[in-house]
């Protein structure tokens, strides 16, 4: 097990390395926005028909007439202090981001849940039945999931479940009366609001399932290969040689397979938290991915920087989490 003192020092050290990463991400995003051959002030003021004095006013307000570094500093200071309003929607961008995030997080949690409950058992079965019809079926499923474009499968599912069967809804996001855990499904169950639960399920289940559909096959293949590696290792053979009962051999096999699988799942989850642009757009879900595309279309520079920043932050934090989890599972790793 890890020593807590070591963990504290490690966290501080890692947090310090966050800073250059985050600065780098935001700087890169801003540089691209800065050199894009378009006038943000004009776009925000209303496009070609905007009156020149309004354009000038917007330009002054957002310091767009000042040099690169001053502009960058202005955006960053106001984004980090949460005091900047979107020049397009006129809402506080942090609040907007949070509204999108709660939707995306709900889908991400459900999608990860589906991916895990489908991917891990299938992977284990494929490993145990290596080179049989079951193994090949899992391989085929993984291939289909990988290579199916998500917009295509999303439209097909919408056609089946909305147009034909009328099982799902495509408008709004139903929310329970109070937010407890932040997960709508669980909150609705806690509050006993089953009609809302029903609405949530028919709204969020399908997009989550589509996200799971394109990744569970990959996870299953990964679990299979990890499992096969572990099962063919010397320590598993030696566990048999020591006459350990099957459940004890399994304990060795599973714990050793767990480490790389947990990593893959966590990074997948971090990716999902950054928003599923295509799926959210098809289902008209106001999550981060949906809002991100909107911000890009509107040339909403502060929102673009914020969204990129948060995505970067999730990836960095996930890799930190993975490191800590490794240290807990694997005694060979000391932080």
């Amino acid at each position: 097990m890890i020593q807590l003192a070591g963990l504290g020092r490690y966290l501080v050290r890692r947090a310090i390395t966050f800073i250059p990463t985050i600065i780098g991400i935001t700087l890169l995003t801003f540089t691209i926005a800065f050199y894009t051959p378009a006038d943000p002030a004009r776009a925000w003021a209303g496009g070609q028909k905007a009156r020149p004095e309004v354009v000038e006013q917007v330009r002054k307000m957002y310091h767009l007439d000042e040099p690169f570094w001053t502009q960058y500093y202005f955006f960053m200071r106001h984004i980090l202090s949460g005091s900047i309003y979107s020049p397009v929607t006129h809402n506080n961008i942090i609040v907007e981001w949070m509204q999108g995030f709660i939707v995306t997080a709900n889908i991400a949690v459900l999608a990860t849940f589906f991916t895990i409950i489908l991917g891990i058992p299938l992977g284990i079965i494929a490993a145990l039945r290596k080179d049989t019809a079951i193994d090949n079926a899992v391989r085929l499923l993984a291939l289909i999931g990988y290579s199916t474009p998500s917009f295509w499968i999303a439209y097909i599912f919408v056609w089946i479940f909305y147009d034909v069967l009328r099982w799902i809804t495509l408008v709004g996001v139903p929310i329970p009366s109070r937010i407890i855990t932040g997960l709508f499904v669980i909150d609705a169950i806690i509050l006993g609001e089953f009609n809302i639960l029903d609405a949530i399920v028919s709204r969020l289940l399908l997009p989550s399932f589509i996200l799971a559909f394109i990744s569970f096959g990959g996870l299953a293949r990964y679990v299979r290969n990890t499992m096969l590696d572990v099962l063919s290792s010397d320590y598993i053979l030696y566990a048999h040689a020591r006459g350990l009962p099957p459940f004890r051999v399994w304990k060795h096999a599973l714990k050793n397979s767990l480490i790389p699988v947990v990593t893959v799942i966590l990074f997948m989850f971090a990716g999902l938290l950054s928003g599923a642009i295509i799926t959210e757009t098809v289902f008209q879900l106001p999550g981060i991915g949906y809002k991100y595309v909107l911000a890009i279309n509107n040339f909403d520079i502060p929102s673009i920087i914020l969204y990129t920043l948060m995505t970067g932050l999730f990836i960095v934090i996930t890799s930190l989490l993975v490191d800590i989890l490794y240290a807990i599972i694997d005694p060979r790793i000391r932080l």
Binding site: S233, D234, Y235, L237, Y238, A239, A241, R242, H252, K255, N256, I329, D330, P331, R332
Partner: peptide
């Protein structure tokens, strides 16, 4: 019982 050739890989690293 067995004494395996390579003790490094015969023992499970996680226990």
């Amino acid at each position: 019982t067995y004494v395996f050739q390579d003790p490094t890989s015969a023992l499970d690293p996680l226990y």
